[in-house]
Every structure is written in structure tokens, then in C-alpha cells.
Design a protein around this nucleic acid. Sequence first.
DNA 1: ACCTAAACCTGGGCGC
DNA 2: TGCGCCCAGGTTTAGG
Length: 263
Amino acid sequence: MPELPEVETIRKGLLPLVKRKTIRKVVVIDKRVIKDIAPKEFIAEITGEKIADIERRAKYLLFKFKSGKYMVVHLGMTGRLIFTKDKYVKVEFKFSGNKSFYYSDMRLFGKIRFYDSYPNLDLGYEPLSKEFTFNVLKDILNKCKGIIKSVLLDQKLVAGLGNIYVLESLFYAGINPQRRANSLKDNEIKKLYFEIKNVLKKALNSRGTSFSSYVDAKGKKGSFQQKLSVYGKKDLPCPKCKTPIKRINAGNRGTYFCPNCQK
DNA sequence: ACCTAAACCTGGGCGC
DNA sequence: TGCGCCCAGGTTTAGG
């Protein structure tokens, strides 16, 4: 599911609703979502913790507790953090006063972990950070022989992009997703660098892309799906040249692009 | 290093 | 209605 803009939208909405609240009770409805720790221990660790902050790193949400410990949530494809129960609720977090928020996940690709201190998640650059410069992207791409699409999806290199925003960025930059990363010229890398940031910012302004599962902390869908150019647009006309958008399999994922505009 | 396929899951949508 | 297939915002692992 959720890529950087969706996870950030969830973070922003959730924070004011849970900040400074203490988790009084945890109910694990499906233990498959809790990783690297027994559900019993997880419950014991989290119960009584006061939420000091929620940070985001790539597609992860880091619940920082006042104790300095962390609960880290990855939403997988269909994870949700919501205040109204749905049929896929896997964990309930109860505050005092009979108020709860829920982790829901239809497909169960999401993961919840617990850490005693700030976690090392082994991730690459945040694409919207000032550390992620043109030269950083250039160095990354020059070192990689794989297809550009797969390189941009590698969370150890650039962290937070997923299938939608990689394909949309490549479209605006006019680059075929199957090009070798190290074959890009400086002017193409420049365009790509700009479009990655631009697409992410625009998606953030639209509060993310909602197809089915993704909603923000208040249960609201994003609207960026209305602004997509190629993702999911098989056989529809390219917004620039009207050539039908192609769908192929590349890097083991559905890959959409305009065969005329993207060389 | 790089690639593919499969695994982890539960649907929705389509053709027949 | 129903079956069977393909598809899905992700990550990880195995094997070539």
C-alpha cells in the first residue's frame, strides 16, 4: 500500500489524536502481525507506555514512547491505523476512558515490532530530505547496473518510494522504467531528481493515493489517484501524447509507462 | 551484483 | 451464481 505520502499523511493525522496518551491495554487479535517478539511480551512492553511522538522513516511509523522505547509499524499493503473498528482489526490499543485505536490489515503483510531504543531499520536516503541531493542520486544510479525502476524501489538506496511514485516520476522525467540505472545522462538524472521530489510533494498535498484500503487516521481517503498519469492506466491515452499506456512486468511488478514519451 | 519466482495473505474484478 | 484466473500502494528469501 502505502508509500511515503500515505504514511506521512497518516502520521500527521494520528499524532494529535494520540500524543501524550498512555496505552492502558493491548489486545492482540491476530498474533501474525507482531514480529520478533512473543505477543505476551509485546503486550507487557507496550502496556503503560505513554506516546511522546510519532516519527516517520520511509514507509515506517515509529511510535516513540516517553521511556525512550519504540513501537514500529509497517503497513504492508493494506495496513490501517484507525479509530473505528473494521472487519480486519488485528490489534487494539486501548487508552483510558474506553477510547481505542486499532491496527487493521486485510492482507496481513504489515508488521509491528518493539524496540528498547531507536531502531536501526537499514534504510537509504529520505527522498525529501536535504541530504538527498542531485549528486547523491547520481552516485547511486551510476553504481547500479539494474533497471532504473528496481533501483528506485530498493529501500536500502532511496527509502519511501513504491511502485506508484517510482512509475509516475519516471513518466514525468521521460525515462523508460527498463533503462539501466547507470545509462542515465546527467540531464536525465536531473529531471528525475526534480520529478521524484515534485511527485511526492504533490501526492502529499493530495493526502496520498487511495485505491481500496488506504485511509488516513480519520478514515478519509486520499485523492492523488485522480492525478495519476500512468500508474494503473493500461491502454488509456498518455496525458502528453495520447499513445496508449503499456503495462509490462518488470522487476516482478506491474510496470506502466508511455512507450512514446519514455525512452 | 543482478534477476526471477515464490512466499507471506485476502480480497476485487473480470470472462465464461 | 459460481469458478478460475489475474490483479493489487510491500518485503524477504531462495536459487540461478
